[in-house]
Amino acid sequence: MATDKTRGWSGDSFDRYKEYRYCAAMSVIGFVYSGLQACHLCYDLITQKHAANFHHLRCYFDFAMDQILAYLMISASSSAATRVDDWVSNWGKDQFANIATASIGMSFLAFAAFAISSLISGYNFCHQSAAAA
């Protein structure tokens, strides 16, 4: 999405539209969170120790973050998709709209990954809560 800049008659760029900036920002935040979570889980698997002192609260944190990021990702994706639809209905398809559509498709895939992660963390959250009781 960030590389979606045209040099043609429209001179458009993704950063001129807040919907596209929101989608790009949520993608970056989701990527950073997922990367940090993957590093933490790899550390746990390799050392057989928990990297943080709050490992008993981890299921709460994972569940909350997965839920928040899933909702924000679908919100960002749908707002950007609405902008592309408006763009195409007003000016027709062009390279700018094609690149934005591809980026939004990837954003919807990221939402699907967060939704699945949310289901898994929800299961872990309920399973740990039941085991503690």
Rank of each mutant, 00 (worst) to 15 (best):
M1P: 08
A2P: 02
T3F: 08
D4L: 01
D4W: 01
D4K: 00
D4V: 08
D4R: 01
K5D: 10
K5S: 09
T6K: 06
R7F: 12
G8W: 10
G8S: 12
S10H: 06
D12T: 04
D15N: 13
Y17K: 14
K18Q: 11
E19P: 02
E19W: 00
Y20W: 13
Y20P: 02
R21V: 14
Y22M: 13
S27F: 05
S27R: 03
S27Q: 10
V28Y: 07
V28E: 10
I29Y: 00
V32D: 01
S34L: 03
L36V: 05
L36W: 05
L36H: 05
Q37S: 11
Q37K: 07
A38R: 03
C39D: 10
H40L: 09
C42M: 14
C42K: 08
Y43P: 00
D44G: 04
D44I: 01
L45P: 02
L45E: 11
I46T: 04
K49G: 02
K49P: 01
H50M: 05
F54T: 14
F54A: 14
F54C: 10
H55I: 09
H55S: 14
L57W: 11
L57D: 15
L57R: 11
R58H: 10
R58M: 14
C59Q: 13
Y60K: 11
F61P: 00
D62N: 15
F63D: 07
A64V: 14
M65S: 11
D66T: 05
Q67P: 01
Q67D: 07
I68D: 02
A70Y: 01
Y71S: 03
Y71N: 04
L72I: 06
M73S: 12
I74P: 00
I74L: 07
S77N: 09
S78K: 11
S79L: 01
S79M: 03
S79T: 04
A80R: 01
A81W: 02
T82S: 12
T82R: 13
R83I: 00
D85Y: 06
D86E: 15
D86C: 09
S89H: 10
W91N: 15
G92P: 03
K93N: 13
D94G: 07
F96Q: 07
I99W: 04
T101A: 07
T101F: 02
A102Y: 00
A102S: 00
S103F: 06
I104M: 00
F108R: 05
F108N: 05
L109D: 04
A110V: 09
F111G: 03
A112I: 01
A113T: 08
F114P: 03
F114L: 15
I116A: 14
I116E: 09
S117N: 15
S117C: 08
S118K: 07
G122L: 03
G122C: 01
N124H: 11
N124C: 10
F125T: 00
F125I: 01
S129C: 11
A131S: 12
A132T: 13
